Computed example of a mutant assay.
Amino acid sequence: MLHVDVGGSITAAAQSLALSAGAVSQQLAALRQDVGVDLLRPDGRTVAFTEAGRVLLEHADRILAAMEEAECAVAAVKGTVGATATLAALPSTVARIVAPALTALGSDHPQLTVTCLVTDQAQLRELALGTVDVVLGQRYHHLPETEHRGVEISPLLDDPLLAVTAADGTGERPVALRDLATHHLVMPPPTTECGQAITHACHQAGFAPTTRYVTADIAAQLTLARAGLATALVPRMAIDPDTPGIRTAPIEDHPILRLLFAATRRTETTDPTTAAVVAALSTAARQDHTAPLPPT
């Protein structure tokens, strides 16, 4: 039921559980028969809970939270890192945060196996669904900060977007965002947080960006920039320091920043396993913060 609540539909719940929609429907039908009252009702193209369904969900929520709290308390008493954890992370964080963090975890906690889901859809809802233990997520600073019930947020670092062009031997001088008004840009789709952040910053700088290429694929963005076909605006952490043939420059007048954070389910007792994963991510982010930019 929690998966239906968070996902908004039986199909979404089935996908999050790696089950068929029919299997989830059968389980819900069996639960309805046990309870003796309808738990869901049609709501347009999705479903919504009846009053009875919402009451049952609230009790199930408390039961699951109590079970997780008990597991954390036992783990804390043992004081040892467990055997498994699941991390969801954005592709743009893999090279410079996730990979170093997993390497360190393998050395410090060899008994711990971390399953890493690399996806652009690394959302905090995955924590509520119980499908992941830690989320390495992002929030662009132009967006209002929102409170997420039952989620613990650990900020890692502010990651600036850099202007990326073909290498020209001029070094890494800062650029003014307004100077890019005459550039052809390669942009993420306008439906993405990054695309919205870039558009918002450009409007603040007094111009509408001239978009020649649209892609969320950062490798494609860098390829177009290297070829001299467009200027890309790419998060610093998404750029491999060894990438040849590009010039990177910080934006000095209207910086575009995303906050990278690690998120876990909030519990009264700290879980040593998730704490170890968050600590490794934090160390990797801190160590890379002063790493050199790509050569020009």
Rank of each mutant, 00 (worst) to 15 (best):
R62S: 14
V118F: 06
G169R: 06
E145V: 14
G130C: 09
L105E: 02
V135G: 02
A166M: 07
E71I: 00
L162T: 02
A99C: 02
T165H: 01
C116M: 11
G106Y: 05
V151E: 00
Q138A: 14
L127A: 08
Q111F: 03
P155K: 10
P160Y: 10
C72H: 06
A163P: 07
T182D: 15
H109M: 04
M187H: 09
T103K: 10
E69Y: 02
V134E: 00
H183C: 10
V118K: 01
R149M: 06
A95I: 11
L156F: 14
L90V: 05
L157I: 12
E152N: 12
A122Y: 06
Q138T: 15
H148T: 07
P155H: 08
A89K: 00
T115I: 13
C72I: 00
L105K: 01
H184F: 10
A99D: 13
C72Q: 04
P155D: 07
K78N: 08
V98I: 08
Y140M: 13
R149W: 07
A75R: 08
H141Q: 14
E69F: 00
A167Y: 03
R62A: 15
E68L: 07
S107G: 11
A85D: 00
Y140W: 15
V118N: 02
V94H: 01
G171V: 05
L143V: 12
I63N: 12
L102G: 00
G171R: 05
T84H: 14
T165L: 01
T86Y: 06
A128C: 04
S92I: 05
A181M: 09
L112N: 04
L64R: 13
S107Y: 06
T131K: 12
T80K: 14
R62W: 12
E145H: 13
V98A: 07
L143F: 12
Q138Y: 11
V135H: 05
D61T: 15
T80D: 11
V74A: 14
D159S: 09
G82C: 10
P91Y: 11
H148P: 01
L162V: 07
Q111G: 13
L180D: 03
S154I: 11
L177A: 05
H109D: 05
T131R: 15
A88K: 00
A95R: 15
V151H: 03
L87D: 00
R149A: 12
L177K: 03
P155Q: 10
H142S: 10
L87Y: 03
S107M: 09
A75D: 06
A83C: 05
Q138C: 14
T86V: 15
E69R: 03
A73S: 11
V164H: 02
A76S: 13
L143R: 15
V151D: 00
Q138S: 15
Y140C: 07
Q111R: 15
H109K: 06
T146E: 14
L177I: 08
L177H: 04
L124T: 08
R173G: 11
M67Y: 03
